[in-house]
Simulated scan of single mutants.
Amino acid sequence: MERPTPDTAGDLIRWASFSCALVPVVLLGYGTSLAGAAGAALGLAAVTAVCRLLLRQSERGAARASAEEGAPRRGRHGRVGSGAHRGGRHAGGDTPVD
């Protein structure tokens, strides 16, 4: 039986959200003004939101990379095989090229 993979990004976001709630309470307990505690809470919430966005984007990229691992490799422009290349200098017949 396979063990489910832990949702480490989700755990991280849950702890960050908990901190967003806990830090202003602690700041108020130590005598910080309500405006200062609210500012800290908003700053932490903004940082948490950005981190969540980056973590989810990273997870999608990792999932996409692991899905493409089994796919066959293709050429630079998506063509398979070597074939003739376009562009560049082509000598006609036995004409020497400088």
Rank of each mutant, 00 (worst) to 15 (best):
S66H: 09
A21Y: 02
G70C: 03
A35K: 09
S17D: 15
R64Q: 11
L34W: 02
G10M: 07
A16C: 10
R56E: 12
G61H: 15
S82E: 14
G36T: 12
A41N: 05
P6E: 12
R76V: 09
S33D: 11
A37K: 01
G10H: 02
V23Q: 00
A37L: 02
G75L: 02
A37M: 05
G92C: 04
Q57Y: 07
H85V: 07
G93V: 04
H77K: 09
L42E: 03
P24S: 02
R76Y: 03
I13H: 02
A9F: 05
D94Y: 12
V50Y: 04
V23I: 15
R64G: 05
S17H: 04
S17Y: 00
V80P: 10
R64W: 03
R60D: 12
E2P: 05
P4V: 09
G31H: 00
S66F: 07
V25I: 14
E69L: 10
R74T: 14
S17L: 09
A21E: 15
A91N: 08
G88C: 11
S58G: 13
G36D: 12
E2D: 02
G83K: 02
I13L: 14
T8V: 08
E69V: 07
L28I: 04
A65M: 07
A45V: 03
A63Q: 11
A84F: 08
R86A: 13
R52K: 12
A49V: 15
R14D: 14
R14W: 01
W15T: 15
V50R: 08
L27Y: 02
A49T: 15
L12A: 15
E2M: 07
L27N: 08
R3P: 04
G88R: 09
G75V: 07
A16D: 03
G36F: 00
A84T: 07
E2W: 00
T8W: 05
R89N: 03
A65R: 05
R89T: 05
T5G: 02
L42C: 07
R73M: 08
A63W: 02
H90N: 04
A46G: 12
G39H: 02
C20W: 01
G39N: 07
R73C: 06
R86L: 13
P6R: 10
G70T: 11
G81N: 12
R56F: 08
G36C: 03
R60N: 12
L53T: 15
S19G: 14
R52D: 08
A46E: 03
W15G: 14
G61Q: 15
A37C: 06
V23T: 09
G31Q: 03
G78P: 06
H85N: 06
T5L: 05
L34Q: 11
L54A: 14
R74V: 13
G92F: 10
S17F: 03
L55D: 02
V23F: 01
R56Q: 13
H77D: 13
L28S: 10
R14E: 13
A65F: 00
L44I: 13
G43E: 03
D11A: 13
P6G: 05
D7T: 06
E59M: 10
A16L: 15
G87L: 14
G78T: 05
R3F: 14
S19P: 00
W15V: 15
V47K: 00
V50G: 08
A45N: 02
P24N: 00
L28T: 07
L55G: 05
W15M: 15
A45K: 00
